[in-house]
Design a protein around this nucleic acid. Sequence first.
DNA 1: GCGATCAGAT
DNA 2: CACATCTGATCGC
Length: 774
Amino acid sequence: MPLTNDDAHRRHHSSQFQIPTNAGDEDDFLPSTQTLLSSRSQKPLATSDLSLHISTPKRPRRSTQTATGKENVPSITYRDVGFKRQKNGAVALDDGEVFGASDIDLGCSLDLIQPSIVGCSYETHDVNSGEEIVDGDDKFSGAIDECKGSKGKGGYLVNSIESRLVNSRVDYDIGVSGSGDDKVSGDDFESDTELDLLLNLHSELDEEDGINREGFGIEATDFMLDEEGLIQCPLCGVDISDLSDEQRLVHTNDCIDKVDAEAQNVALTPDKKQTSGPRQSDNSKFSTVLKWLHDLGLSKYEGLFVREEVDWDTLQWLTDEDLNNMGITALGPRRKITHALSELRKESSLVETSTNSRAYSSTGQQSNNGSDGREGSTNGTNKTPPNKLITDYFPGFATNKKNPCSSSSVQKDVGKKIPDSLNKGKTAKRNVRNRKLGNVPVWSCIPGTPFRVDAFRHLRGDCFHWFLTHFHMDHYQGLTKSFCHGMIYCSTITAKLVNMKIGIPWERLQVLPLDQKINIAGVDVTCFDANHCPGSIIILFEPPNGKAVLHTGDFRFCEQMGGLSVFQTCRIHTLVLDTTYCDPQYDFPKQETVIQFVIDAIQAEAFNPKTLFLIGCYTIGKERLFLEVARVLRKKVYVTAAKLRILKCLGFSAEDMKWFTVNERESHIHVVPLWTLASFKRLKHVSTQYANRFSLIVAFSPTGWALSKGKKKSPGRRWQQGTIIRYEVPYSEHSSFSELKDFVKLVSPANIIPSVNNHGPDSARAMTSLLLSS
DNA sequence: GCGATCAGAT
DNA sequence: CACATCTGATCGC
């Protein structure tokens, strides 16, 4: 049942948004054709720019079958939003689940905001808008202030670009080139726009690539060169200089398989140990600890140490706080232990890399913790040699690019399919990421420290210090409220979200300040804003061994970051790098450029008052995009109450917050989850629901993948089906290829560990063109 | 019945 | 591809 005018009238209306009246009759309105756009746009430039060719989406739309054979039809349902229909027909948010995952599914909010459409009374809306959305968490206010304080220092929030957007000449670098072979409307472009750069990128890189191949022997760069220039197997260290490239791969792959098999054999137990009892299965690894305790005359704490699964490695890094947390509340015993521990550390610092063989490494092969093996290749060479290839920083990269299931055959044409005999789909991918070190991926271990980063999928008793770089599912996955493995370190914003959404008690959360060195377990730790999503951090670890490790988490390199003095003053030994877009094909524009594009596109279409604009976002992420749209256009954007609650955690100023409204009548720009925009099917559903109020939907999908492979040089895409237009805009919260390049150049690490190893076979080559010295 | 985990989806 | 997420099934408590 469509919303009637009467219904609309009875809802309270806001004057905030003035609908332009100069548009043609709504009946006139044709589903945005290129001509129409051009002729009506306030900015001819923008409209011509928008004239991307309309292509058929590649993915066939089909309903998917669940495992049970049930039709999995995406739909907007009450259940999706986690609210309840009340007796009177009104709908209320289900408070008990306000922050349940589904509750944040803003895309499903249409039922909520348009209850009459689905047969509810208007009280519903009142229920909604009158919903108590005040957090009531005063205890956080200090923390939030702290966040705000960081604004001026170059945090996520600092990149307010409003003034630049308003004043600067519009750079239509994106969404302007049509299919890629169209000529860009000449007058409107300067010759040296980013677009040109984009267009030239591929050829340039190809050339570069060629040079590399000839000059340096690109195929060999996947392997480690030792100091004498011999090529070593990244796994066993054997000299393989004399082998052909293929033979080298074969050799390496065999090694991987061996290591993997070993890791499988020994590592299966820890994960399964719930069933067999945590203690007995690997009691031996605690025996040294227990003996040590006994020698100190503290046998009575044996139980605690076993319960917390403190093995010898973990022991070395326990702090007084840890001991207290474990339940050793008496000061005397804690003193005794910490003193004994400091003695231990002194000893072990003499033998620098000497972490004892890891718990699950029964084979003698160093199977864990990132501090070993890998470092051997670059050990001692803090100075970066000139013309070092990027893959020189990826010891064992050959192992990563290889499909783990392709065993030991050399294959460049292996394609995407993984042999059925082994893993399939995502499982296989995970194995790619996690291979090499048994269970714990290399990138989550910080060499020289007892720390893990974003490794909650691999919780173990051998670690007490868990860092979380930001609050995205793929980084906190595995973290549940029953977490009992020590302390979690993260930013204020992340801590707040972790506490709220997962229910981790504050006692387990340690907030890390920004731009300020602190000491944790004998390691200096400094955090910087990662410019990824709110609360995201880059972490610098300076362990006693002098080999600084910089872990970027997910990050987008930006000017402010380049200005940080640490990167110049501190020698970074190991860089754990977000390599999501470490491929020349990903060279998207600056965020502000994309934001400007979105703003202009909205303006171009806004002559039609019956246009609904949708902007995609994540639970956390892409805020800057819709906030800037709101600020520049001076229009509020609609968010659901649940989303607003999240936004309130992110440290935005009161001034910024006023651009958000939970009253959808106040805005024709709605913020929705990205996946709502993923398919036209869903968009059509939205369109149907809004049939009375809107005749056109313009959706923006902000994603770095907008520039991916199949899409070639088209820098942003416009799709249209009937009265629905969807733009894929290259708004990325990860570093582009060239930004990665700049960052690596700036940091000049001796060693790089990629945190994303999901590149196909070809990208190895692409990576090699990442020359440091260029 | 609930939470944790995983497989399979967009 | 998969940025990050959702959904359903399964298992253990």
